[in-house]
């Protein structure tokens, strides 16, 4: 087993606007099982941050517990990070985002970490519209504790030991839609072509951006009978191809008329939905819920951007909080003096 990644990189690696190569966004070598879908998601996050030219030190990674929650070690080695306790990443993320609104927050969680122990916290992140990207690496099981069914395991899916799951799985994307999330998407770890632009869009979105990513557990949930194996996912995949075009950048790809729809984000960047027909409306929550339900009924794993509210108000705006990070405020701003205190007190009399 190799514990270090060689230092050499391709001598002609492209650079982004900051002059960094993708290698500048690398983390430590992964200790996850060979072939784990989570490693692909790590690579997609790394690539997305590189492509969007976000300075690594302006990113904070937050996670809970699980194989999926270990992922932040394996990308963005030069960014901030907080590996919290099981299911409690939302509290940490909420606090951090309130304290420093200028960082880009990437939350990485698992189906266990989110849909079981963390459900209570997760739902409030949505409700509060905390400005962050929240990725669930969804493998339908508790990988780290050896593959027990999780709450997202599909009804009828067969566990590695042969037990058939008697419960309906929680559809986290449907739940997020219902609870009013301002950005909801679904993807597949094996489809970086779609996942990378989605992550870029999620990071550009102001508010809570949720991506449910099917991410096969090769060790415990990749057998025949599992509904979240590589083969089964590919078999039922109904992927919406898309591009992300950052603010002020020209669209370089040419699309035939009527085959694409652009969804513009608050900052002017855009998501181009290729092959989307004219009836598709990314900003219609009810329609999105319908589409998701329909796909579920058809046995299709519908991936792509499901819903986006470009005018979303994030938690900081909503509570009318300081417009600058707390660590940038000086003594006078933090402690405005007895005169101000007096006037506040007067106002409460």
């Amino acid at each position: 087993m190799s514990y270090i990644k060689p230092k050499f990189r391709h001598p002609r690696l492209p650079t982004n606007k900051l002059g960094f190569t993708v290698a500048d966004y690398d983390g430590a070598i992964s200790t996850l099982c060979a072939g784990c879908g989570h490693d692909s998601i790590s690579a997609a996050i790394r690539n997305a941050c590189f492509q969007s030219a976000i300075p690594p030190h302006r990113i904070a990674k937050v996670s809970g517990i699980g194989c999926s929650s270990k992922m932040p070690t394996y990308f963005l080695g030069k960014s901030h990070g907080f590996n919290s306790v099981h299911g409690r990443m939302p509290s940490v993320a909420t606090g951090a985002s309130l304290a420093n609104r200028d960082l880009t927050y990437i939350g990485v969680s698992g189906d266990g970490d989110t849909a079981s122990i963390g459900m209570g916290q997760f739902i409030h992140l949505i409700r509060r519209n905390v400005n962050m990207t929240y990725i669930v690496a969804n493998n339908g099981c508790y990988g780290l504790t050896k593959g027990q069914d999780s709450a997202t395991a599909d009804l009828g899916s067969v566990a590695k030991g042969g037990a058939v799951n008697p419960f309906d799985g929680i559809d986290l994307a449907a739940l997020a839609l219902l609870q009013g999330a301002s950005f909801v998407a679904r993807s597949f770890s094996g489809d970086k072509g779609q996942l990378e632009p989605l992550i870029r869009a999620a990071m550009a979105h102001k508010g809570f951006a949720f991506i449910d990513v099917v991410s096969p557990c090769v060790t415990f949930n990749n057998h025949v009978g599992s509904t979240k194996s590589y083969a089964e996912t590919r078999e039922h995949l109904d992927a919406m191809p898309l591009d992300f075009v950052p603010m002020r950048e020209e669209i370089t790809t040419q699309y035939a008329e009527g085959t694409t729809q652009a969804v513009t984000l608050h900052d002017g960047s855009a998501i181009h939905l290729k092959k989307a027909d004219a009836t598709y409306k990314a900003n219609d929550r009810r329609a999105a819920m319908d589409v998701v339900q329909q796909a579920h009924a058809d046995g299709r794993i519908l991936t792509g951007l499901l819903y986006l509210d470009p005018d979303s108000q994030d938690l900081n705006q909503n509570l009318n909080l300081a417009t600058r990070p707390l660590n940038e405020l000086g003594k006078d701003e933090l402690c405005p003096g007895s005169k101000v205190l007096k006037s506040i007190n007067e106002g409460l009399r």
Partner: peptide, 14 residues
């Protein structure tokens, strides 16, 4: 099985 593990790990993007 096209899991991308090799692409992701390859230090020299081969």
């Amino acid at each position: 099985i096209e899991c991308d593990a090799c692409t992701d790990i390859c230090p020299t993007s081969c």
